[in-house]
Design a protein around this nucleic acid. Structure first.
Lengths: 132, 132
DNA sequence: CTAAATACGACTAAAAATATCGGGTATATC
DNA sequence: GATATACCCGATATTTTTAGTCGTATTTAG
């Protein structure tokens, strides 16, 4: 119910790895996949997504690879998760707002509050706190 | 990544419904299923599990049904979730503690802390806050 | 005895997450 | 400019989890 997806896990591991390198030093997919025993193809896709989201910068060609593009201080864990996986919420109606039970549902308000607190908590964590 | 399962959703809806009845008044599976448009068979199973966990009391036979067994003030949302769905954690190693990456993983500590805060938050919510 | 209700295990279906495949594009180096 | 390395990306396959169904048994009021 509250487990990180592999994609998020792999992303965080990769980001942490890159964060610990010298400025401008690149990391390849293979290098990271081997070091952390992650299926290479999946990690490749994950890194491509991170590149598309401009969280990492990609350099193509031989001696290419990835590096973190910006300080991760300014990206919250919540934003990161939602960029990677789309809008998050404890229940359908917190993201979609179209549920047939809308008018008869008896737990909507309390769940909404918990959901808000949860998101607040995640938005107060910076990615760099995790990848540092 | 942090969505409630249907089972939890149905449970909360049912508990809330029962909580609003007179002391000792029973609710049947059918009654609740119809009112909230929940598949009856599934709700039945869910209520049976709640009965087994002694969160509700079941009365068999005609005019039977369920009622909340104890004050839900003393049951935390975390305990409720873990009773229903087993141990929860953001990552494998928070519940299982056997991950092959154990010694090479670079995000274990920070994730562990977030996990702890999350669980603390959920343990500070009483079920009755949701079902009231 | 019958009907209404819970109890429960086995099975199926649907959805989501995870992983794989096959072909593309950019570029450093020889 | 040929080649090898590394990123790019859509489609598909596999696995796991979640959701839902079915059939049968048990309890008990009337």
């Amino acid at each position: 119910m509250l487990k990180l997806t592999r994609k998020l896990e792999y992303s965080l591991i990769a980001l942490s790895h890159m964060q610990h390198k010298e400025e401008n030093e690149l990391s390849t997919t293979k290098e990271i996949a081997v070091k952390f025993a992650i299926p290479q193809e999946i990690l490749a896709k994950t890194l491509q997504q991170l590149a598309k989201l401009e969280i990492v910068h990609a350099v193509q060609g031989p001696h290419g690879g990835y590096k973190v593009i910006e300080s991760l201080d300014n990206l919250s864990f919540l934003d990161f998760i939602e960029k990677m996986e789309g809008p998050q919420g404890l229940v359908e109606c917190t993201t979609d707002s179209d549920c047939s039970l809308m008018d008869v549902c008896n737990i909507r308000q309390p769940i909404k509050i918990i959901n808000k607190n949860l998101k607040t908590m995640f938005s107060n964590i910076s990615l760099s706190e995790i990848t540092q």
